[in-house]
Structure formats: structure tokens, C-alpha cells
Design a protein around this nucleic acid. Structure first.
Length: 853
RNA sequence: GCCCGCGUGGUGGAAUGGUAGACACAGGGGACUUAAAAUCCCUAGGCCGGAAGGCCGUGCCGGUUCGAGUCCGGCCGCGGGCACCA
């Protein structure tokens, strides 16, 4: 007898699908389309078990939609520009291009055995000149449309390596390679005007009702709309030209709680003072040694320096406040200056305490008196509080109301104006790196910044570069930089900055609709395929990638590359969890940790041991897989040992897709055993000649329809683990069923279809064994018969005081009164009542009965 | 530091405010086998009890409710993001 043998049959079915052209996306106006997209991978070198999970989920949706009659687009590509390729070139020699395309080839070969329903004819990498050339064309259109501009911005500068560092390359304020203390440096850089779209990007979140609420919330907070007051303090003893300091505050109601003014070290006043005062210069230099990331700024010790300058309080000419330079004020947000109200802001409180500044309370909780504060009092803005230093509105009001009243009062008094501010900053896209899309402009001494002519695109990266020196090889390339000005023809210099890789990933979804088009998009194709019906990816992209893509789609619309309907490119979003694994650790003689791969250890009596020498292994609970901790599982080995279907089945079972899943060898083996069980069951049923048995046949048919309904709902609702559980249950039901052979064959074929999106190879195998017509992948999705789902009785739990004490089974449509009667007659209820009458009787029809005593 | 999540048996997890632990893994017991593997069957949150049954139980503390894993407030722990990692 033959056995379940995935290593032989899986490649055969993949060949059969390819021969039948099952996964070629067809622009068929007669059929509804469905566009499934998983976030494309970075070609790091090998596929990861997390990729298997991500792409399996997308594949389930794609295959399910195919069998529901949709024309499906399910493409794959590579997010191929970025730092790791340059790092590899620096560390191991070679060229980023060779490294990247080599990795892509390996990963494509590793991915294909998974049997994904991908239309590989649409594959591209963002580092293909055909792709980035179109990106350059759009950049020029956006430049023309005023969506791109240049301004100065700060970067992390490594003074030893003489290079710009990414935030992740700054560790504890030092360069990762050189160890030198990082400096902030200003460079002129390119920006997208995303902040012009802040209000629209925020408002449009409401329409994204198939996005996770948490992602919408995170984006809304990131955009950070606030209503506040912008006004100026007039200064005393300030240098010329600085007679006013503009500040922005979201809490103008606390103006009478002001204790100090703090400005950023990058504020024009700070920069002015720096030039004349060595002490200020020293302090500002210190501030600039903190990296540019908000995290670094916020977690650094809060420090300030009194400038000696004083400002007058706008409501009291006698009241003077000191002006500090502080390391936690961002020049990029608001005006780069704030007033501190220590009583109602913890950061200001800490600052005031540190520098011995007053802490006057503005409001107290409703019934309280003013008393010295041990910490800042920061109640929710919606809570009514009593204002003791208020100046507008009622004494007792909410923070919200007080802010509105304060703005109105200040505007009337001529102190500033109410403004709406956004936290969202413009998107800096310049990168001082080689392996990215060149920014297609030229710097000409006579003409200034000149866009490259479209017919000269793509501006291709030169291949002859070296990575023996830090910094951007384009900057020191002997000939590439030199060019003629597209306007006047004089000798000019190419822009050597390349684009942020987020640009590449902000429109790839549109390119997949016409990947070989001679323009960025093809109107007919984007019109048919957009939007992405289901986008799937990691929660780590909740803010930046998704927000940039939403902006870019709008910018593409404005420049004629996308229709209006595509300005929100992703109709539905699903964020899946990570795959984790235990970490196995021993220690060397010096007590340093040594990590071990999962295949190097075994479970033995009394714990986990090394296979090599039996040494006891410390097991650290599940963590995100990382090479350095060696808790990685190689999908290639799993597929070799168990087959793709086992890997797919395991990735879908047990854990809910949005949550992290732990890979365990036992779980994978269990998945394999189950698939073998299904195979044997199919084999047994195919041979059976059992006669029909009306009761058994009817029961099995009912169970089958219930399973169809449950599995369909599970797939539609991204509850793959629940769908898998129903499939387990139905497999057990089918195995034990005494129904006749014909009914069991029908049920088995249905089971194969329901399993097909998840374990497509096994499904084909079973479908074929049971005489299914054609390929299972092309069969229409089974439909549950609603009549088969109706139950005529229902079991109601009976609670006494909220605790389950008994249950009754009653006809589904029994009246409330009769249910009450049955419940009260129940033994357990009688016992509890002990002859008395219930205080209350709650009957929720079809659900529960609660007797309150 | 700020924003967003998550926390349920030995394990992964299920559960429109309505029977907590579906479905599985590991475990225990049994069948088959010369034996093992494979397979099949039974069992299974903890405590007390022979059983019937009872008490406890969804990170911790409190609240709302006839009823809370689910809603609200406060804490603890873990994870994601913080604009140049992708």
C-alpha cells in the first residue's frame, strides 16, 4: 500500500498547477477581481519561518478567493535596496548588486517548494533599473507638482568614519563601528510634503474600517493633531533680533502655572548665544551628542542651562521667567520653544525640581485644596477640575473646556492665536548611501538644482564602486558624478544622495498591476486591479510604511499615476504575529553565554541536554528568532523532512494569526501525523463499499454542512486556527462515521476542498483518490445549505447566582415562560431554592438561565 | 520617556457580556504487535471526595453587571513602534 509521501507528490502537483496556468493573474472584465498582497520580503539571504507564516496566510486567502470565482492577483517581489547589502560588501567584499541578486535567487528557490499560488511572471526587485527608473520618473513629476523640496535637516554624523549613521547604527550615542561619539550635523536634504496631507491622512483613517483599530490609532497618534495656542513672550536682556520667543502650547489654560521657558539647542536664539558664549556652546554641543532619534532624546537625562535671558509673562508685566536651553525640546515640533508648567507635566516637574524652579498649581481635583505637589498632577482632559489659577471660563471645568476658553480669552486679549498643529513632520528621503534609487537631479553652478530629463532615465547606479572606505561611494566616484547640466549643458554634478527605501515600498503594490509597463503604472491595469483587497504584513510596519504608502498613493494620484479610488491603496489590512522559538543556552568557562541551535539539543529526563556531550542546557522562554541567539528554524529543512503542507498546516493551526506563534518540533510532527491520518482516511474511504445508512448518512451530511459554514467563516474572519480546529473535528467525525460509502466519499471530497487553501498538495491528492473532477484548486468552493445548519433543540445552562449548576435541553422555540418553568423544576435549582422563591429569574433565549436567590 | 498591543491548564490555544479550557500537543492508562515503530481507543485545570457533589480558578488589585477571560480604573510583566533597520 502506498503512503502519504509529500516529498514525491508536492513537486508533482506544483508542476500540474504550473502546466494549467492556475496562478497567472488574468485581467478579465467579466469577473470580479481580488488582489491579495503580502508585504514583500527584504532579500536577506534565506527565507525565514516567519515568511512561511506570512505567505501561507496570504495563500489561504488567494486560493479561497480563486475557488469563490474571483480573478486573483497574488504577486511577489523583493524590497531589494538597503543597508545590509552595503554592509555585506564592506565586511565580505563583493558588490551589493551581486549579493542582492544572489540572495533573491536563493530565496526564490526556497520559496517555490511552498506551493504558493503566486504569479511569478510579475516578479520584480526594487533594485531593477526598470523599477527604480519609473520611481525616478514619478519623483520628477512630484518635484514638478511641488510635492518635493529641499531644506536643511540634522543627521547622525560619525566624526571618525566621516559618514552619516542610521539611528540603529548609533548605540549609546556612539557610532557602531568607530565607537566615536556621534554629532548631529545639518545637511541639505530632499523632503516629501507629507505634512501638507496630515489632516487628510488623519480624517481618511475613519474610512479604513477593515484595518485593525490599533493600527488606525497608532497612525492617528503619530499624525498627532492638536489644538493649541501660539504666542510670543517678550524678552528682557536678549540679543538684538530676539525680542520675542514664539512658543506653542496645547495647554494654554495652564499659562498662570508657567515656571520657565525652554528652547531647543537648535533654536535660532541658542545658536546665536552659542557663538558668543563658550559655556552655552559647550552645553549645546553636549545636547547634540545625543542621537537624532526621538527615543534617544526622550530617554536621555533631562538637562537644561539657564541663558540668563528673562521673558515677561504675557498677563503680568512684573512676572519674569527664566529662559533655559533644554536637551528635550525638539526644533522640529511646534516652534522649538515651550513654556514649562511643572505642576501639570511630569517632565516639566522633574526639570523644575532639578533646577529649583517654582511649581505653582493651576488646578486641583474637585474637592481638594492647594497643597505642595510630590509629582505632577495630570488628570484626563475630560475630567472636571477646580481652577485656582485660571483666567478664562468657570472655576470648575474640564481641561478641554478650559483650553478652548483660554484660547478665546488670549485671542481677545491679543496674546497669540489658536492654531491646529500636527506632530507629523515632512518625510526626509535623502540617504547618503550607494545602494538605493538615485535622486534624478543635477547640480549646476549656473542653473542650481536641475531635474534630469525624463528621456535620460533611469539614472543607473554605476557598478564600478568600492566599499573599502566608509561613506557613500557615489560621492567619490571618478566619473559618475560628472555630467552635463540638462538645462544649459555646462559641466555639472549629479546628486549623490539616493532615496530612502521606504519610497521603494510605497508604490510596489501599484507596479504589480503592470510590472513591465513603460510608465510607472498602466491606467487600464491599475483601474482593474487596484485596490489591494487584502494586505498582510507585520505590525512593525503599522506606522511608517503604511503611512508613507498612503501619502505616496495620494501623490501618485496628484501626478496622474493612480486613479482617485486608489488614494487609500489597501482596502483591508491584517497584521500577523511573529514566529518565536525557545533559546538554548550553556555557558563557557568564563561564564559567557553560548547559544545552540534547536537541532543540537534533545529533551531528556531532568531537562534539556546537548546531544554532543549531554551538558545541561538552560532553556530561555520563547523569543523572536534571531541568528545571534541561534533560536532559528530553517523552513528548508522542515519542508525536506515533512513537506510544505506540514509547515503550512502547523503555521495555521493553534495560534491566532495576529498573535506570535512558537515553533515547536512536537507541533510540526503532530501536524505531519494529522496530514498522514487524513491521507489514510481518504485511502480507506476510497476503497469502502459500505451500504447507505439513512440516519448515519444524514448525521454526517449535517456535520459536513456545519463544517463548511464554520471553516468558511474562519477563513473570511482570519481565524485560521479556528478553521483548522473545525477541520480536525470533522476529520474525527468522518473517521468514526458509520455512513455509507457514497456519503463518506462526498464528505471526504468536501474535506479536501476545505483543506485545499491550507494544504493544497494533500488536497489534490485526496481529491484525486476520491474521483474529484479536474484539479481541487480549480473546484468551486462548497456552499453550506442553511437548512442543514438549523438545530431543533438547544441546551441551556442554568446558573444559580451566576454559577452554573445544571442544564436543560429544550426545543429551540420554547417560550420564555415555559423555559422558566423548566428551569425552576430542575433538581439543582429546587435544592438551591430550598422551598423559597427566587428573587429574580433571567432567561436569555437560546443562551442561558440565571436564577438569583 | 512617549504611542500601541498582549497576558487563560504542563504547552499552543477556544469562548457575539451568558456552560471557561473547544481543537490540538505533551502526559497517564489500554488495545494491536514476538518486540519496537506506526496506528487505534480511553483519560485528563487545581484541591477535597469512593461517588454524587463541592470549593478555587483566565497576570495582580479594585469597580460596573443577574452574570466579567470579555467592559471600566489602577498596577505588574512581556512585545511592537518612535521618523536613516526593513
Amino acid at each position: 500500500m502506498t503512503r502519504y509521501n509529500p516529498s514525491q507528490t508536492e513537486p508533482e502537483w506544483q508542476a500540474a498547477w504550473e502546466a494549467a496556468g492556475c496562478f497567472t493573474a488574468r485581467h478579465d472584465p467579466a469577473r470580479p477581481k481580488y488582489y491579495v498582497l503580502e508585504m514583500f520580503p527584504y532579500p536577506s539571504g534565506r527565507i525565514h519561518i516567519g515568511h512561511v507564516r506570512n505567505y501561507t496566510m496570504g495563500d489561504v486567502i488567494a486560493r479561497y478567493k480563486m475557488s469563490c470565482g474571483f480573478s486573483v492577483l497574488h504577486p511577489m517581489g523583493w524590497d531589494a535596496f538597503g543597508m545590509p547589502a552595503e554592509n555585506a560588501a564592506m565586511e565580505q567584499g563583493g558588490h551589493p548588486k551581486a549579493w542582492t541578486y544572489g540572495n533573491i535567487a536563493v530565496m526564490r528557490d526556497q520559496m517555490k517548494p511552498l506551493g504558493l499560488s503566486i504569479d511569478w511572471s510579475r516578479e520584480f526587485a526594487t533594485c531593477d533599473p526598470e523599477y527604480y527608473g519609473q520611481q525616478q520618473a514619478m519623483f520628477l513629476d512630484m518635484l514638478d507638482a511641488g510635492l518635493v523640496y529641499r531644506k536643511a535637516a540634522t543627521v547622525n554624523w560619525d566624526p571618525v568614519d566621516m559618514t552619516v549613521l542610521a539611528n540603529e547604527q548609533v548605540i549609546d550615542g556612539k557610532g557602531w563601528r568607530s565607537g566615536a561619539v556621534v554629532e548631529r550635523r545639518e545637511l541639505t536634504q530632499w523632503f516629501f510634503r507629507i505634512s501638507d496631507f496630515a489632516g487628510e491622512l488623519l480624517d481618511a483613517l475613519d474610512g479604513l474600517d477593515s484595518w485593525p483599530e490599533k493600527v488606525r490609532l497608532m497612525q492617528a497618534n503619530w499624525i498627532g493633531k492638536s489644538r493649541g495656542l501660539q504666542f510670543a513672550f517678550s524678552t528682557l536682556d536678549a540679543p538684538e533680533g530676539f525680542d520675542r520667543i514664539e512658543v506653542y502650547t496645547t495647554r494654554p489654560d495652564t499659562l498662570l502655572g508657567a515656571s520657565f521657558v525652554a528652547i531647543s539647542a537648535d533654536h535660532p536664539l541658542a545658536k546665536h548665544l552659542e557663538r558668543h558664549d563658550p559655556a552655552v556652546a559647550g552645553f549645546c554641543a553636549d545636547c547634540r551628542h545625543v542621537g537624532t532619534s526621538e527615543e534617544a532624546l526622550e530617554t536621555a537625562e533631562k538637562k537644561g542651562m539657564d541663558t540668563g535671558i528673562r521673558v515677561r509673562h504675557p498677563f503680568d508685566p512684573e512676572w519674569e521667567l527664566p529662559v533655559y536651553i533644554a536637551n528635550f525640546i525638539l526644533m522640529d515640533y511646534g516652534t522649538g520653544a515651550i513654556f514649562g508648567c511643572p505642576a501639570h507635566d511630569q517632565r516639566d516637574f522633574d526639570f523644575a525640581t532639578k533646577y529649583g524652579l517654582p511649581i505653582p498649581a493651576v488646578f486641583v481635583s474637585e474637592g481638594a485644596d492647594e497643597a505642595p505637589l510630590a509629582e505632577a498632577y495630570v488628570p484626563p482632559k475630560t475630567e472636571p477640575v477646580r481652577y485656582i489659577r485660571g483666567f478664562a471660563g468657570a472655576a470648575l471645568q474640564t481641561g478641554e473646556a478650559a483650553v478652548d476658553a483660554a484660547i478665546a480669552h488670549c485671542e481677545a486679549a491679543g496674546v497669540g492665536r489658536g492654531v491646529t498643529n500636527y506632530r507629523l513632520r515632512d518625510w526626509g528621503l535623502s540617504r547618503q548611501r550607494y545602494w538605493g534609487c538615485p535622486i534624478p537631479v543635477v547640480h549646476c553652478e549656473a542653473c542650481g538644482v536641475v531635474p534630469e530629463r525624463k528621456e535620460n532615465l533611469p539614472v543607473v547606479l554605476p557598478d564600478d564602486v568600492t566599499f573599502d572606505l566608509p561613506g557613500n561611494p557615489l560621492d567619490r566616484h571618478p566619473t559618475w558624478r560628472d555630467c552635463a547640466c540638462p538645462k544649459c549643458g555646462a559641466p555639472a554634478r549629479r546628486e549623490t544622495d539616493t532615496m530612502d527605501t521606504f519610497v521603494d515600498s510605497s508604490w510596489y503594490y501599484a507596479r504589480f498591476t503592470a510590472p513591465r509597463a513603460a510608465t510607472p503604472t498602466d491606467a487600464a491595469e491599475v483601474d482593474y486591479w487596484m485596490n489591494v483587497d487584502q494586505y498582510i504584513g507585520g505590525i512593525e510596519h503599522a506606522i511608517l510604511h503604511l503611512l508613507y504608502s498612503r501619502f505616496f498613493a495620494r501623490a501618485m494620484h496628484k501626478t496622474g499615476h493612480l486613479p482617485a479610488k486608489a488614494i487609500e491603496p489597501f482596502d483591508a489590512l491584517f497584521t500577523q504575529g511573529m514566529v518565536t522559538h525557545e533559546i538554548y543556552m550553556t555557558r563557557d568557562a568564563a561564564g559567557r553565554p553560548v547559544y545552540h541551535l534547536p537541532e543540537e539539543v534533545e529533551r531528556a529526563e531532568g531537562g534539556v541536554r546537548l546531544k554532543a556531550n549531554g551538558a545541561a542546557v538552560e532553556v530561555i522562554p520563547s523569543a523572536k528568532m534571531s541568528k545571534s541567539k541561534k533560536n532559528v528554524v530553517d523552513p528548508v529543512a522542515i519542508i525536506r523532512d515533512f513537506g510544505a503542507d506540514t509547515a503550512r498546516w502547523f503555521m495555521l493551526s493553534d495560534s491566532p494569526p495576529e498573535r506570535d506563534v512558537e515553533w515547536t518540533a512536537a507541533g510540526a510532527e503532530a501536524a505531519y501525523r494529522h496530514l498522514g491520518r487524513v491521507w489514510r482516511l481518504a485511502d480507506e474511504i476510497a476503497r469502502s463499499d459500505a451500504p447507505a445508512l439513512p440516519d448515519e448518512d444524514a448525521a454526517l451530511t449535517r456535520a459536513m454542512h456545519r463544517t463548511i459554514a464554520e471553516v468558511t467563516a474562519g477563513i473570511e474572519g482570519f481565524a485560521f486556527n479556528s478553521a483548522v480546529a473545525r477541520l480536525y473535528a470533522f476529520t474525527n467525525t468522518l473517521a468514526k462515521s458509520g455512513a455509507g460509502a457514497e456519503t463518506r466519499r462526498m464528505a471526504m471530497r468536501t474535506l479536501a476542498q476545505l483543506m485545499s487553501p491550507m494544504v493544497p498538495h494533500l488536497a489534490e491528492e485526496v481529491w484525486q483518490m476520491l474521483g474529484g473532477d479536474g484539479l481541487a484548486v480549480q473546484a468551486a468552493w462548497p456552499k453550506a445549505d442553511p437548512a442543514m445548519l438549523v438545530e431543533d433543540t438547544v441546551t441551556l445552562p442554568i446558573q444559580v447566582n451566576g454559577k452554573r449548576r445544571s442544564e436543560i435541553t429544550v426545543p429551540k422555540d420554547m417560550s420564555k415562560e415555559e423555559v422558566e418553568k423548566c428551569a425552576l423544576a430542575d433538581d439543582a435549582v429546587q435544592r438551591a431554592l430550598n422551598g423559597g422563591a427566587p428573587k429574580k429569574l433571567i432567561v436569555v433565549p437560546g443562551r442561558i438561565v440565571n436564577v438569583v436567590i
